[in-house]
Nucleic acid binder design. Structure first.
Lengths: 405, 405
DNA sequence: CGCAGTTTGTTCGGTAGCAGAACTAATAGG
DNA sequence: CCTATTAGTTCTGCTACCGAACAAACTGCG
C-alpha cells in the first residue's frame, strides 16, 4: 500500500522509451499515435530524455506527403548491462547495450577455487569487457549473473550450487556489488535460459512456456503469463524429482530424483551398459551412444528411444499441470534434433492434444541472452519506470549480432 | 499501449477503498498514514466516495489524546455479487455484499435439460435471492459462475462440460447476461475453489499453492504469485493426464487420463473389486470402501493405501514442477482426513523437503466462496480502479457467516 | 478550570503531467 | 504556386495530488 507513496511521476516515460526501442527510428508524431498520448506530451518527454542523454535525434523522414518528421532513437551506449553465465566449467560474460545488442563477449574457465576468487574473476571479466569496448565502468548499470543453483535473494547466497565452492556460504550478491560497483541480480541459469528463448529463441513472444534442460542433470524453467515461476522455495522446475522413471519411493530417489536417475546422462549410460552386457568398464559417453544410434546400432537406438519416451512423459506431466503453449528442449542431450523429433513423435501417443515441442534455438547462449533480457528490463524499470512496480518491458525485436565494436 | 489512453484518473481511490475494507471503521487520518497519501487528498476522495454512496460515516473515536476522529466504513449493501456454483447435480447461489459477507444462499438440483433451461434456473435463483434479501436487481453488479468445464472467454461457450447439456454449443455468458442484466464471469469450478481456499480456507494468504480435487474425476488448480494459472488452452490442472498410474501410452489414456483411471473413484472401486475376487457385481461405493478400511478390512485398507500413494505421487509431480508452498486436497475423496494424513505421511518418502499438505477447509463451499472473491475483486476494479489494469484486491479479512438477513 | 500537548480535519496555494485547440512549419503533388 | 497533409509548438486549462498553515476538538495535568 505504501508503495503508492511516490505516485505516478512520469507515468508515460516508459511507454515512450518502449516505442523508441521497438520502432528503431521514430518521429514524435508516431509515438503520439502509438501511445495515445498527445503530441505535446511526447515532445516534452522526448525533450527530457534527450537532455538526459538517453535519446538522440538521428534523421528525418521524407517521401510521404506532409511535413518531414525528425526521428529519434535510443542512444544505445548510454548504459550497459553485464550479462554473466556462470557455469561449473566456464564463465561467459556479455556486455549488452541499451538496445540489447551484445557489444563484447568473453569466456574463461571457471576458477575452481570458488568463492571470492570466482567473484573477482567475474568482476575482472566484466570490467575488462567494458574497458575493451571503451565503456566507462559507471555506464555499466546492472549485472545479471546466472548461477547453477538457487540464489536466495534475502541472504545473497546461492543454495544447491555444488559446482562452485563456497557460494552457499557467502553473500555472493554483495561481494559482486562491491567489485562491480553496480546493482547485481542473481538468477538460476535455467531460468535465464527460458527468458533467453522467449526473447530471441524458440519461444519468441510466447507468454506461457516451459523449458527442459537435459544434460548431466535435468532442470526446468517455467514461464506463466510472461512471468517466471520460482515457487515457494525457489525450487520450481526441479524436474529431476518427478515421481516416475525410477521408483520415487526408493531411498536413493531422495538424493537424486527418480526421473533424473534415468533420463539424465548417467542413466543413459547405465542403461546402455546393462543392455550391451554390462562390463564394469568406464562405458560409453552419451555423444558416442547417440552416434551409434545414428549408425543404426540396436542397443543404442533402444536406449535413446527409452530416453525419449521418458522425456515425453516429463513433457506430458508439465503439460498436464501447467498447459504451456510450447515446451523448449535444451541442454546437451535435450536439444539434439534426434531427441526433439522422437519426443514430438511420441507425444500424440499420450496426450489427446499434444503440446508443441521445439529444440532450443540459442543453445549454450540462451542463459547469456536471458541475462541480458532481464538486465535490460530492470534497467528500464529503474530508469524510466519510477512508479509502476514491475512493468514488463517488451524488449526490442531481436537484432542478431550487434556491431562487435 | 493504447490502454494508457485515459490515464491515471483517481489512482488512489482503490487504495482508499482497500484500507476502508480492511480496517473496518477507520478515520481519514489513519487512511492517510497507511496509504502515504496526504490528509487533504484522502478527505477529498472520501467525500467523493460518500457522495456516490459507497462509504458512510459510522462513528467517532474517543479515549486517545487529541481530537476525536470521524470514522468511515464501506456501505456493505451498496452493491452485490452473485456467486454461483453450478455442478452436475446441484446449483448453489450465494448473494454477497461488498464486504464479502454472504447475505443469502440457495441451492437447487440442476435442471437436467441443460442449456437455456439451466441459464434461466440460475437467473431465477439469483433474482429470487436478491428479492428475498430486499436488494434491487440493479444493485447486483456482477455474477461469477463456476462451471464444471473450461469456459472460453472469447465465445462464451463452456468446453468439456459433459454434465451440462448444450453448454458447449451456446454462448452461456451472453445468455446469462441477458437474464441477469449484469456482467457475468464464467470460470472453471476448481479454479474458483482454489481462490476460495486462498481467501478463507486452508491456503489463507498464500500466493503460491495448488489444489487437487479428487472425487469422481480429478482436477487441479494452481495459483502462482497470487495469480491463477490457466495455461495456453485453459487446460492447466488437467491432472488426470499425468503420465503415471496406468500406462500413459495406452490408447485408453487418451480419453481418460492414465492417472485419473487409477486414482479417481472408478479406479478405486475397480481395484477393490479385483482384490476381493472380482465378481462383475455392481461393487462397492467409495465411501463404503473407506468405512471398511476404517474398520480394518485388509483389502479396503490396501486399496486406500495405494490410492494415497498415487495421490502422493501427484502431489510430488506438482511440487517438482511448480513448487507451491501448500497443496490443498479437496473433493469428496481428497478431503477425507484419512487420505490427507496418508499422503502427508508418504511424502517424506519421495521428496527431500516435502510440501505442506492440507485438507480443504471449505469443502463444497469452496467454489462459491471463490466466486465471491473473484466477483468482489472485479467489482472493485471496475468501480474504483479506473486505470491500473488488473490490480489484485486484497480482500477483507474473512468474516465468517454474515448476518443472514 | 484552564492551559499544554496532541491529533484531526480544512483552507489555501502550488505543482506535475497531461489534453485539446489553435496555430505555425514543412513537405508532396498537382 | 496552391492545396492537402502531416509535424511540431504554443497556449490555456484541467485533474490529482502535495505541503504548510491553521482551525477544531479532545485528553490530561497542574
Amino acid at each position: 500500500m505504501s508503495r503508492a507513496l511516490q505516485l505516478s511521476r512520469q507515468f508515460s516515460k516508459r511507454a515512450v522509451m518502449e516505442a523508441l526501442l521497438q520502432q528503431a527510428p521514430i518521429s514524435r508524431a508516431s509515438i503520439a499515435k502509438q501511445t495515445g498520448l498527445s503530441k505535446q506530451t511526447i515532445s516534452e518527454i522526448v525533450r527530457h530524455l534527450e537532455d538526459a542523454g538517453w535519446v538522440i535525434e538521428t534523421g528525418r523522414t521524407n517521401g510521404q506527403v506532409g511535413r518531414s518528421a525528425v526521428t529519434y532513437e535510443v542512444v544505445p551506449d548510454a548504459a550497459f548491462v553485464a550479462a554473466v553465465d556462470l557455469g561449473g566449467t566456464k564463465v561467459r560474460v556479455g556486455l549488452t547495450d541499451l538496445r540489447g545488442a551484445i557489444v563484447r563477449e568473453a569466456t574463461e574457465f571457471t576458477r575452481p577455487e570458488g568463492g571470492q576468487v570466482v567473484v573477482e574473476q567475474i568482476g575482472r571479466l566484466c570490467l575488462q569487457a567494458a574497458a575493451a569496448a571503451g565503456v566507462g565502468r559507471e555506464r555499466v548499470r546492472i549485472a545479471v549473473v546466472g548461477v547453477p543453483g538457487a540464489p536466495d535473494p534475502s541472504s545473497g547466497r546461492v543454495r544447491f550450487a555444488p559446482n562452485i565452492p563456497d557460494f552457499d556460504r557467502m553473500d555472493v550478491a554483495a561481494a559482486l556489488e562491491a567489485v562491480l560497483e553496480c546493482d547485481v541480480l542473481l538468477e538460476n541459469d535455467v531460468n535465464l535460459a527460458v527468458q533467453g528463448e522467449v526473447w530471441q529463441g524458440a519461444g519468441q513472444g510466447l507468454d506461457t512456456l516451459a523449458f527442459i534442460a537435459l544434460g548431466t542433470g535435468i532442470g526446468g524453467g517455467l514461464i506463466v503469463g510472461g512471468e517466471l515461476v520460482r515457487g515457494a522455495d525457489n525450487a520450481a522446475g526441479e524436474l529431476g524429482f518427478l515421481p516416475f522413471g525410477a521408483d520415487p519411493f526408493e531411498a536413493e530417489s531422495l538424493r537424486t530424483g527418480a526421473f533424473e536417475r534415468l533420463v539424465a546422462s548417467a542413466g543413459i549410460r547405465a542403461r546402455y551398459r546393462t543392455l550391451t552386457g554390462g562390463t564394469d568398464a568406464p562405458g560409453m559417453t552419451v555423444p558416442e551412444i547417440f552416434s551409434r544410434a545414428g549408425a543404426g546400432e540396436p542397443a543404442a537406438t533402444q536406449v535413446i528411444d527409452e530416453t525419449a519416451c521418458l522425456l515425453a512423459r516429463g513433457v506430458a506431466a508439465i503439460a498436464a499441470i501447467a498447459n504451456p503453449s510450447l515446451v523448449v528442449l535444451g541442454g546437451s542431450i535435450g536439444s539434439r534434433p534426434e531427441m526433439t523429433e522422437r519426443v514430438r513423435a511420441l507425444l500424440p501417443g499420450c496426450m489427446s492434444s499434444p503440446v508443441d515441442v521445439a529444440a532450443s534455438r540459442l543453445g549454450p547462449q540462451a542463459a547469456l541472452i536471458g541475462a541480458a533480457a532481464i538486465g535490460l528490463s530492470h534497467l528500464h524499470n529503474a530508469l524510466f519506470g519510477a512508479d509502476a512496480p514491475e512493468a514488463k518491458l517488451s524488449l526490442p525485436p531481436p537484432r542478431q549480432a550487434g556491431s562487435k565494436a
